[in-house]
C-alpha cells in the first residue's frame, strides 16, 4: 500500500533485482547512472531501498552470525560437582577451537545453528553495550532464545556474548538454589572477552528436571573484578552489577516438555 510519502510504483521503477544489486553494490556499470538518477527522483524506490536495508539489518540482528555459530551445541557431560555448584544441570566445556581459520568453517557453523532464530530481547534485560546471547538445542534443532522463552528439561543451552569493547566476562546461573559460575572455567579467575558480536563461549549446559526459572547473568567488567565481588553483587536484591561493570540478565522459565 502506498502512503502519502510513497507515491507508488511507476513503470520506470527499479525491479527487485535492481534494488538488491544496488544495495549490494553490484549494479552493472551501464545502469548505474540511470539508477542513481531514478532513485534520487523516485520516492517509491527510495523507500524500497530503505525498507530493504532495514529488513536486512533486522534479519542479521535476528539470525545468528557466522563467528558465533562455528560449532553446534556439544553433547553435555557431567560437570563433576565443582565447589559451589548447586545447579543440577550438567555442563560441558567445549574444546576451544582456534579462531575460525576459514570462512567456510564459519559458514558451516552458521548454517548448522541458523534455525528459526528469534528476537533476542524483550525489554526486560539490562541494556548496554554488552550482552549475553543464548541458543537452545532441542530435538536436534537449534534456535536462538529470547529472554522469557520457555525451556524444558533436557534442553541444551549454549551462550554467546556481544561486546563493543574488551572486558572481563563472567557468566553465572541461578536456578533458585544458589549461584553457579559457568564462565570462566573453574580455577580461572577472569576471562578476557574481546570485542565481538555473538562470540560463542566454551561451555554448554544441559538442563535438569527441576522446574522453575533459570536465570543467567552476564557480567562485563572493564576493570578486573574478583569473582567474590561479582557474586556478592549478584546476591543482592535485586542483583546489580559491580561498579564499572555491565550486567545482562536472561530468564528462561523451565517447564515440562509438552
Amino acid at each position: 500500500m502506498s502512503t502519502s510519502s510513497d507515491p507508488g510504483p511507476t513503470p520506470a521503477c527499479l525491479s527487485a533485482l535492481a534494488i538488491d544489486e544496488w544495495n549490494a553494490g553490484e549494479t552493472p556499470s551501464a545502469m548505474r547512472a540511470a539508477h542513481a538518477a531514478h532513485i534520487e527522483d523516485c520516492a517509491h524506490c527510495a523507500a524500497r531501498l530503505a525498507a530493504a536495508t532495514a529488513e536486512a539489518e533486522a534479519f542479521l540482528q535476528d539470525a545468528p552470525t557466522l563467528a558465533a555459530l562455528r560449532e553446534g551445541l556439544a553433547r553435555p557431560t557431567p560437570r563433576g560437582g565443582a565447589p559451589g555448584d548447586h545447579h543440577a544441570a550438567t555442563v560441558r566445556r567445549l574444546p576451544r577451537i582456534a579462531a575460525v581459520t576459514t570462512a567456510g568453517l564459519a559458514l558451516a557453523a552458521a548454517v548448522m545453528l541458523m534455525v528459526r532464530p528469534r528476537l533476542p530481547e524483550d525489554g526486560t534485560r539490562t541494556k548496554g553495550s554488552a550482552r549475553l546471547g543464548v541458543y537452545v538445542k532441542r530435538d536436534g534443532r537449534v534456535k536462538r532464545a529470547a529472554n522469557g522463552d520457555v525451556v524444558h528439561p533436557g534442553d541444551t543451552l549454549r551462550f554467546t556474548y556481544t561486546s563493543q569493547a574488551p572486558r572481563h566476562l563472567s557468566v553465572w546461573g541461578d536456578d533458585g538454589q544458589g549461584l553457579t559460575r559457568y564462565h570462566p572455567a573453574p580455577g580461572a579467575e577472569v576471562a578476557q572477552a574481546e570485542p565481538g558480536r555473538d562470540v560463542p563461549l566454551d561451555f554448554g549446559i544441559e538442563l535438569d528436571g527441576a522446574l522453575g526459572t533459570e536465570v543467567f547473568y552476564g557480567v562485563f567488567c572493564q576493570p578486573r573484578v574478583t569473582a567474590d565481588a561479582i557474586r556478592a553483587a549478584l546476591e543482592r536484591t535485586p542483583p546489580s552489577p559491580p561498579r564499572d561493570c555491565l550486567l545482562d540478565v536472561i530468564r528462561l522459565p523451565k517447564e515440562p516438555a509438552p
Partner: peptide, 17 residues
Amino acid sequence: PDLDDFYRRYAPVAYRR
C-alpha cells in the same frame, strides 16, 4: 567470496525472496 561476508550480505536477500 569470503563466505562469512557473503552470508551477511546475501542471506537477508535470500530470506526475503
